[in-house]
Amino acid sequence: MRVRAKVIKVKAGVFITSLFMSLCALMIVEAYAQQEGREKAEALSKEAAALFDEGNINKAIEVAGEAVKADPNSPEAYDQLGQMLLKDGKTDEAVKAFDSALNINPKLRTARTGKGLALLKKGDTTGAEAVLKEALTLNPYPSMAHYALGLVYEKLNDYEKAAAHFKEGIKTYKSGKK
């Protein structure tokens, strides 16, 4: 009986050890896959940015979409896609992309400002104002958020407030806070 018990113990030990080893191997493989995905996404993001700079917006959006697929956990990839869609006037899709970025990282200032701009383009000035005010409080580099809020107030014909925000945007940029 004692021998049998020992054998069972050894077998259990071997089983647990192999299970642990397999899990480790699985984690390593996954980490490698993630790393690979991140690297691929980074390369695709760079390619998208270059295409965008060259004025090839449709292709840039396509490549930015591939970057999102390569690393679905990257808020920056969603943000880049959102900015390009926004530039292309596809505001609904842009809001979706910014929301995906903000779900992963709610403090991503560029995505919040981008969402505000997209809502403004859609004509939702109230929504845009709320999102951009939030962006302003979160944002240590608020020139862009001031710019977007200035646009909101310009749309609302409140030119005093619009001028004040644009001026503040210029001031913060000059003081080194972009």
Binding site: S143, M144, H146, Y147, G150, L151, Y153, E154, Y159, E160, A162, A163, F166, K167, G169, I170, Y173, K178
Partner: peptide, 21 residues
């Protein structure tokens, strides 16, 4: 701004910021 033409003033501050950014 000095001449209280705030619509034009806001528009020009915007253009300046657009150029800067």
């Amino acid at each position: 701004e000095k001449h209280k033409m705030m619509k034009e003033s806001a528009s020009d501050y915007r253009k300046a910021l657009e150029l800067i950014l």
